[in-house]
Simulated scan of single mutants.
Amino acid sequence: MKLSRSASWFLLAFGVWSWFIWVTFVRNLVKDASGLAFDDAGEPTAYFWVHLALAVTSFLLGTAVGVIGLRGVRALRRESREGSR
Rank of each mutant, 00 (worst) to 15 (best):
V65N: 09
L12R: 04
W9Q: 06
G62Q: 05
K31S: 14
R27Y: 13
R71T: 09
E43S: 09
A41Y: 07
P44F: 00
A53K: 04
L29T: 04
S34I: 02
F59A: 07
L12E: 00
G62E: 03
R71E: 06
G66A: 13
A64C: 05
E79A: 15
A64G: 13
L36M: 08
V23N: 11
S6V: 04
V23P: 01
L29G: 01
T45K: 07
L12P: 01
S4T: 14
I21E: 08
A46W: 02
S80F: 07
G35K: 02
R78K: 11
S4C: 03
A75Q: 09
A64S: 13
R27F: 13
V30I: 12
W22V: 08
A37V: 05
V23D: 03
V67Q: 04
V26H: 09
F38D: 04
L52I: 11
L11Y: 01
F25V: 06
R85T: 07
N28G: 13
L3S: 01
N28K: 14
F25D: 10
W22M: 14
L54I: 06
L70T: 12
G35A: 03
A46R: 08
A53M: 10
G42I: 02
A37C: 08
Y47K: 01
F48C: 00
Y47L: 00
V56N: 03
S58M: 11
G72W: 11
F59L: 12
L12N: 01
A41R: 14
H51W: 06
